[in-house]
């Protein structure tokens, strides 16, 4: 990564950072909501377990975002994950998170 950094390279790095931060937090939040509502545990236990795990989820997503071969590929993987979680949430609760599309 050393040497001359072209504008395209800089943009690609900036894109990864935005994708990793936004995507990582968004996917971790979606997973937390889904698990909080669906884990077969008492309500307080489900929320606690989901929240405790959420930070590991976020780290995993960030690593994937930076390890993917290209920015497009990283965006596709994270977008797919987010979509799958949102669909699962829709199935579990009958509404999309945060009121989208309901």
């Amino acid at each position: 990564m050393s040497g001359s950094l072209t504008l395209a390279k800089r943009a690609a790095v900036a894109g990864r950072v935005v994708l990793a931060v936004g995507g990582g937090y968004g996917i971790a939040a979606l997973a937390t909501i889904l698990l909080s509502l669906t884990l077969p545990l008492p309500r307080a236990e489900a929320v606690t377990a989901a929240t405790l795990a959420s930070f590991a989820v976020m780290v995993g997503v960030v690593v994937v975002a930076f390890a993917a071969r290209s920015l497009g590929r990283a965006a596709a993987i994270l977008g797919g994950l987010a979509l799958a979680l949102a669909l699962a949430l829709r199935l579990a609760t009958g509404s999309f998170p945060f009121g989208f599309g309901s």
Binding site: A29, T32, I33, S36, L37, R43, A46, T51, L52, F55
Partner: peptide
């Protein structure tokens, strides 16, 4: 590091509490 984030977990990741409570 992980337990440090966990001490303020509900502040950083409140969405489970938002959804269930």
């Amino acid at each position: 590091t992980y337990t440090g984030v966990v001490t303020l977990a509900i502040m950083y990741m409140p969405w489970g509490v938002t959804a269930a409570y």
